[in-house]
Design a protein around this nucleic acid. Structure first.
Lengths: 109, 109
DNA sequence: CGAAATTATGCTATATTTGGTATAAAATTG
DNA sequence: CAATTTTATACCAAATATAGCATAATTTCG
């Protein structure tokens, strides 16, 4: 958001922030969530680049399509373990995982 | 191990390898395990550098001393989620986590 | 457009992870 | 050395994550 637009909104009584502001998350909590989202995005990208459907990936990692969808969405019910195992199953390197986690930093508003 | 020593052992009928060779782990499985070990080491280092006991850390992250010990040991019963949450609670940055995961690569024999 | 494929969302029984506790082993300190 | 602190290991009930399924929503494509 442009700084001037933010000022304009705030002048009229709005508060501008992100989900963690709104929900009152601690920095650790939002860092954790950002990591999941970042890993979820990496999973989706890797899957798409291999032209595989969620169903096919589910079969590969012995999971279900619904679970893959939730992984990619960073759903609260999915663990980072699940995300990492799936990424590894798609051939991601430690370095790629490392980058995804590092990228989580730049998810901040 | 020195290459000549390995050759010497192999000449006498020994097979030289690491745990993943022995247990017949897939590359993904051992990559996952290496990551846990690496994160466990990072946790221990960070805790020690802050001069905190496992008991104190347990209190901080609302867990138990036994669980912290297992985290640091990379025990199969601990999730990467737990490791990451504890590291974040000790003030580790995404970058530091990223490095730990990346370092897992160099755990290979 | 309409059919087919893909993805999202909700639910639940099962499996795994967790905190807590107990206690053993090891390290530290006096 | 003994006492104390710290860490490791084992167990279990409770909490959480999971696969699997149903089905709705969305996208793709003829």
């Amino acid at each position: 958001m442009r700084a001037d637009k933010r000022k304009e909104l705030e002048a009229t009584g709005w508060t501008v922030g992100d989900a963690s502001d709104f929900l009152g998350l601690t920095p650790e909590e939002s860092a954790y969530i950002d990591m999941k989202i970042s890993l979820g995005n990496a999973l989706r990208e890797r899957r798409k680049s291999q032209q595989i459907s969620q169903v096919a990936l589910a079969k590969r990692v012995k999971s279900s399509q619904s679970r893959i969808a939730k992984m990619e969405a960073g759903d609260p019910s999915v663990s980072i373990d699940a995300l990492i195992k799936s990424l590894l199953a798609l051939g991601a390197s430690s370095m790629e995982l490392s980058k995804a986690i590092c990228n989580a930093d730049s998810q901040v508003a």
